[in-house]
Write a protein that binds this DNA or RNA. Structure first.
Lengths: 221, 221
DNA sequence: TTAAAATTCAAGAATTCTATTGAATAGCAG
DNA sequence: CTGCTATTCAATAGAATTCTTGAATTTTAA
């Protein structure tokens, strides 16, 4: 009886450890970045604005929980999500938070003030209109992320380079921009620039993670 | 730019807080119990083997994260899951842990040593055979949980009372027992007793939470 | 072999989390 | 009102988590 109770405790302990691995904003940010593409420690630390030692420490913790995997590549160590189920779980966490915490909506409005300034387009309707060739799908994430996987037929112009490469975009088509997903502001900023200069624009809220979870395929490279 | 970074931090903070609310074995146990039925603090403390003050404290934390809701009922306060999405999320957490942590399987074997001693029956196949009337579906959870919701046509005999009420079970039918789900040992114990006394037995691994998430309906009362 | 770069390790201070205890509150029964 | 029960609150000690800093390790390139 005693050991049985202990076994039960241990079981809950294991589940709690997994939750604990996600119970830190920095680690979630790392997971979120890894959901876009595998990355080195240095890159992760830079993107998430933390010290390398700190990023490394958090990555260890994620690794211990089997949420991420690492692989040596020359003198770098490249981390990636251990498993597609991890991405699904992270999205699920976000979904629950969104559903029951009004604070999330408020914080999102702070982070994406332009959230409601542009037309939105659903994944379904996008696929429909892509077939007709009336739309250019624009991926404004950094190049690495585009190459690790992007939506079918998307064109890559990272936000940084957009101003210089405006010439590549046709004026007679609807420009649909997307980025890392609903909690990323890159696409909003791109749309703001494009719309000021006369393009017809819309935002796709989904990123590659959401797209993939919905059962669709990505293009790679 | 500064505030934007801060808004992003805050967003991750909110998600982390939700994960943090689940990052404790006791709280997970409480959630698991609440997935079976709404309960008072006293009952929860007793079932989870912790002090009332401690249970109350953990419940507050869950409430703060909007994972549970409370409601006064006379001199008791009854807690329940805030939302079906919470149950789904908890099952998802378990699923991920199970998938990637071999330790879970080991711990489960300690907690349910009889796990492989009896025939298992799938939910589909159960529904099939229930129609033919060849099966008695036995719910061995405590009465309260049965009344809060149980599988269609299930018969309630709590594990405690099983020995005294063996007479209620027909010898010529297959007895399928279930309890709180795959991480509960009640049904195993019931099957052990029944099988020793000559019944034909099988275990359904699903509990009411899993059954419901799979899109099936429960009977209440 | 040695130097340089990327990452991890180790140790310490600040913070947060947990369990325990005893007191405080809110409803109920007389 | 007065005690009685169920629950929460408040305070505290002990444990775990986080960030920072500087040293140690592993691989590549010279």
């Amino acid at each position: 009886m005693e050991d049985k109770l202990q076994a039960k405790e241990q079981l809950y302990q294991l589940f709690a450890r997994l939750a604990g691995a996600m119970a830190n904003p920095h680690r979630l940010e790392l997971l979120d970045l890894l959901a876009q593409a595998p990355r080195t420690v240095e890159n992760l630390a830079q993107e998430a604005h933390m010290s390398i030692a700190n990023a490394s420490q958090h990555l260890q913790r994620l690794k211990q929980a089997r949420l991420v995997a690492d692989e040596r590549e020359g003198q770098h160590i490249r981390y990636s999500l251990a498993n597609p189920a991890v991405a699904r779980f992270w999205l699920e966490l976000r979904g629950v938070a969104e559903l029951q915490m009004a604070e999330v909506d408020r914080a999102l409005s702070d982070y994406r003030p332009l959230r409601y300034d542009f037309q939105k387009i659903s994944a379904d309707s996008l696929q429909e209109r892509m077939k007709g060739g009336e739309v250019v799908l624009l991926d404004v994430r950094p190049e690495v992320e585009f190459q690790a996987g992007h939506l079918p037929a998307a064109v890559s112009i990272p936000l940084d380079e957009l101003e210089l490469r405006l010439g590549e975009l046709p004026k007679d088509k609807l420009i649909v921009a997307y980025c890392r997903g609903p909690y990323c502001a890159f696409a909003d900023q791109a749309l703001e620039m494009l719309s000021e200069r006369g393009w017809d624009v819309a935002r796709l809220e989904e990123g590659v993670a959401e797209w993939q979870i919905a059962g669709n395929l990505l293009e790679i490279g």
